[in-house]
Simulated assay, not measured.
Amino acid sequence: MQNDDALAWLDRHDRHLASERRLSPLSRKHYRRDLDRLADWADSSGLEHWTELDSHHIRAFVAGEHRRGLGGRSLQRLLSAIRGFYRFLIREGLCQNNPAQDIRAPKSPRRLPATLDPDQTARLLDQGADTTDPLQQRDVAIFELIYSCGLRLAEVAALNRGDVDADSDMLHVTGKGSRARILPVGGMARRRLAAWLELRPRFAGQQQAALFVSRQGKRLSHRSIQSRLQRLAASTGLDRHVHPHMLRHAFASHLLESSGDLRAIQELLGHADIGTTQIYTHLDFQHLAQVYDQAHPRARKK
């Protein structure tokens, strides 16, 4: 489906995602990649325009992707992209039906997110606490902030100095879908952040808005944050791969263990759907089951 008119609708849809739905460039890139795959498949099947596709075509396309090894979660995302695209085409008057509307991907087994227990988290965050290295002090401030506020990697990397409200100890965060939220910052994170803000002028001037900067004074990249955390984890002797999202998972699971307030955790994490947050109830149950197995006299009775 390489004719100019068909491809033009993909471009118009991308502009719709950017201007009306306000999706991030990364999300739009994923949508476009999925729709380009559908366009390539349609072209190889002799279809010339989006109006020619029906539910049988979409089922055949999804089945082919499944045979190629695409898992349930990826297929769900693929179908979501197609449904959204056709909703746009219907709104624009090009199509009358959504061929992907009633098609469901096979379910994937639920996988619990990897996380850290409170002792591992404390050991990790305390590791660089007494350092005199300003960049390591920056790293500790980043990781304390992720754990204190449950931030995504992209959210902490995008923080600006103006997002920190020192008077109220609150943090202004813009998350997925440009949804804004205001988060309380814990005492330890506040102290680490204050220490970094005193050091920050060594690396960047007032013209640089980014809160966390590199040695060269530029906004710290996602890859740099990931590699610095892995280095810190290795220095503590943690025998596992550690990534920033594990600190977000730790924030949620530790908070749920203490409070049991799933709705509050949903708001703090910035989840649009509480179903996304409910994964942490499984983590909490897993913790309770471990405590039971270790402590109850008859827990391991055969």
Rank of each mutant, 00 (worst) to 15 (best):
A81C: 07
I58E: 02
R37Q: 14
E48V: 13
I58K: 01
Q137W: 02
L53T: 07
W41P: 09
F85G: 08
D40Y: 14
L23R: 00
S55N: 11
R110Q: 13
R59Y: 00
L17K: 01
I90C: 08
D102A: 15
D43R: 15
W9I: 03
T132H: 10
R73V: 11
Y86H: 11
G72N: 04
S45E: 15
P118A: 11
L53Q: 06
L35Y: 06
R91S: 10
T115W: 09
V62M: 09
F85D: 05
L23Y: 01
P109A: 09
P113A: 03
L26N: 15
G46W: 09
H66E: 15
P134L: 06
L17D: 06
S24V: 01
Q101G: 12
N3F: 02
Q96E: 15
A60Y: 00
L112N: 04
I90R: 09
A60G: 12
P99S: 07
F61Q: 00
L26V: 14
T121W: 04
A129I: 12
R37V: 08
F85K: 02
W9T: 04
A129F: 04
A81K: 03
L47V: 11
A63D: 10
L10V: 07
S80Q: 07
P109D: 06
D126H: 12
R111G: 09
P118D: 03
L35P: 05
Q127N: 15
R138N: 07
H57F: 11
A18F: 09
N98P: 01
A60T: 12
S74I: 01
L47S: 12
Y86K: 04
L124C: 01
P134E: 01
R91P: 04
G64H: 04
A8V: 02
Q136C: 07
S44Y: 06
R28H: 02
G64M: 05
R138P: 08
A105V: 06
P118C: 08
T132E: 13
L75R: 01
D14W: 12
H30V: 13
P99T: 10
T131E: 06
D133N: 10
R37T: 12
S108M: 06
D102M: 14
T121M: 12
A122N: 10
G93L: 05
D130Q: 13
G64W: 02
R21C: 00
T121P: 05
S19C: 14
G46E: 09
E65I: 10
P134R: 00
R110F: 03
F85Q: 06
A42W: 04
E92Y: 05
F61N: 03
A42L: 11
D119N: 11
A63K: 11
A81L: 01
D102N: 14
D54A: 03
T132C: 02
R68A: 15
A122K: 15
D133K: 03
L38M: 08
A42R: 08
S55A: 13
D34P: 05
P118S: 10
E65D: 03
D5L: 14
A129R: 13
L79Q: 00
L47C: 12
S24H: 00
I90F: 04
D54S: 01
N3P: 11
K29W: 10
L35N: 01
R37D: 12
Q96G: 15
L75Q: 01
R67C: 13
Y86F: 12
C95W: 06
R22F: 03
R111D: 04
F88S: 07
